[in-house]
Design a protein around this nucleic acid. Structure first.
Lengths: 341, 341
DNA sequence: CTGTTAGCGCGTTCAC
DNA sequence: GTGAACGCGCTAACAG
């Protein structure tokens, strides 16, 4: 029922090898024979079995993409962009959604991608052990999150510069009590929250503002977490007049908490996010914009390039830094003279 | 460099077939031999080549998932849930992101999934030709969008009932000029907008409200489209006092347009959405909630069941309808006595 | 319970 | 330019 290469060969009156060469555009086939084979193949609806061709050639024409949570806007957007680049180049995408610690562990111990992919794009930060597991695959590796790591091409942004622009904006508006909602509950090797926190502290110090630990709360990178964190900050003896959230989703959670506390934004409290989520504009959120889709596409392109030029084998994979910029909208303003309450 | 089944066989002092049987949990291997083989395999870091085993067995343990746009919340969420079910059952997911007409066409003509997947979950609505192409794969098919179609298991919701609850809510609040932002620019075979529109018309008729075509606008299922559509509706000679948007994203666009026109929600205009987007709560949007992740998970489960019981082969695939409910939040209220302007 | 023998469908030498 | 052999790594049928 399923048509194989020999069916095409028979129908075209040639051998299987000629069909193989003809269809893949390899030299050594006369133009007329090639055209005739193409016609027969099309008419029969023939597609080479990927399993068989992978087995024979060693190439899978498949890229593994590892994601912590596809449903989250950031990852969905990166994946979307990366997939487009891969598919345009004739590669399929095998998706691994590693939300829970169990699935994650199972993935890295069993490594189902072994012998199945030509390269891996990881949108989650592998720890040392996980990195080693991926490296053992012997295929090009890339990531769009976290800092430099041996064996990985990394496409990222300048987290410190982004954070600095956001926090400095608040300082310039006249805020002195500036809170932060971080996403620090993640794994220790996850550098982004660390970088952003350090930049936050640096700007405060630079402005001569004393750091108050009561003004930091963990938002877990989710809307709900951001809401909880904001509620926590509001419960401080001296609540902040402005808040920097390390992601837009947490910032939106903060907005919700503020609304529930009947506090006005930005009159009572200013809020800045990070990402420029597609809906940031809807809620008027001031935020640090980063090219999310751009990072996915760029990482995909770099991966494909490594696949095309195996000579870059020896050299360390590259690092690319994409531009960021502060987008001013409606959630920031000078502090109210009478404070948040 | 890559360890094969014969390496394991040699190291364990048995034959390749015994290794195969042992590792896949097939009967006919003594417990001690099985344990020993497992140990050797683990120590060598052996994983069976999917290509080779698919070629030999005919099963790929891979599911193809076809999506119009992974980055969109709805699809990302469905995919996320479905992937979890598939991977828990030992299946990998091949993702096809068919945003543009060209990629879509290429996919359905070349059918790269042929001989590569055991089943297909389609999150986009295939037209007749595309459906036929998928059916020609000879594998179980499912979808979570659109109405019944031959050969497909469909998991969906009652679009009419959902719409009715939303529009009726507006009627009950006292609105008479109720606009609709639809997503009708899609392909003709896409039944959802049609169903929702009909339900909208029915409720109006039922309430003795004359339908005004100037109160309908197309929002293209996007935030920007929703904003444009709302702007259009506001330009009508007698603008609506309430609007039903066929998706939350369009509703959010409408909210943005209203804010730009300095109109208050719900005081000047009420807005109801559809979906219960994860951020609907953040903006206080009243909406028709549907179990998005639930539909993805259910469709995945039904697909796996068909894979387990090929005897259901002859019977028509099932249809499942998931529950919906109206979630009242802060964007709806009785009409202002003096109208929107 | 275990080993042997055949392919699965294709790509890749080699000959011709 | 083209065809015949061989092998990729594994599973399935058959022996024993």
């Amino acid at each position: 029922m399923t048509v194989s290469i020999t069916d095409v060969a028979r129908a075209a009156g040639v051998s299987a090898s000629t069909v193989s060469r003809a269809l893949r555009g390899r030299p050594g086939v006369s133009d007329e024979v090639r055209a005739q084979i193409a016609a027969v193949a099309a008419q029969l609806g023939y597609t080479a079995s990927r399993s068989a061709s992978s087995l024979a050639s060693g190439r899978t024409f498949t890229i593994g993409v590892v994601v912590p949570y596809v449903g989250r806007w950031f990852f969905g957007t990166v994946l979307d962009a990366a997939e487009k680049v891969f598919s345009a180049a004739g590669y399929d995408v095998l998706l691994y959604n590693l939300g829970s610690p169990e699935t994650r562990k199972r993935f890295f111990t069993k490594l189902p991608v072994r012998k199945r992919v030509d390269a891996v794009l990881s949108l989650l930060i592998p720890d040392e052990e996980e990195s080693a597991a991926l490296r053992s695959l012997g295929v090009p590796l890339a990531t769009t999150v976290g800092g430099a790591r041996p064996g990985f091409t990394v496409v990222g942004i300048d987290d410190r510069a982004g954070t600095e622009s956001a926090v400095r904006h608040l300082v310039n508006l006249g805020h002195r009590r500036i809170g932060m909602i971080s996403g620090s509950s993640g794994p220790l090797h996850w550098t982004t929250p660390v970088e952003r926190r350090q930049a936050y502290l640096d700007v405060l110090a630079d402005a001569g503002i004393e750091h108050d630990p009561a003004l930091e709360a963990d938002g877990d990178y989710t809307v709900e977490g951001g809401e909880r964190a904001m509620t926590e900050l509001l419960a401080a003896s001296r609540p902040p007049t402005a808040v920097f959230a390390q992601s837009d989703e947490m910032a939106m959670g903060a907005l919700r908490a503020l609304r529930r506390h009947r506090l006005r934004v930005p009159d009572d409290v200013s809020v800045v996010g990070f990402d420029d989520h597609e809906l940031a504009d809807v809620v008027g959120l001031t935020t640090v914009a980063q090219p999310v889709a751009g990072q996915g596409a760029e990482a995909a392109r770099l991966l494909l390039r490594q696949l095309d030029e195996p000579d870059a084998d020896a050299g360390q994979p590259g690092q690319v830094q994409m531009p960021i910029r502060l987008v001013l909208r409606e959630t920031t303003a000078p502090p109210s003279p009478r404070g948040p309450q």
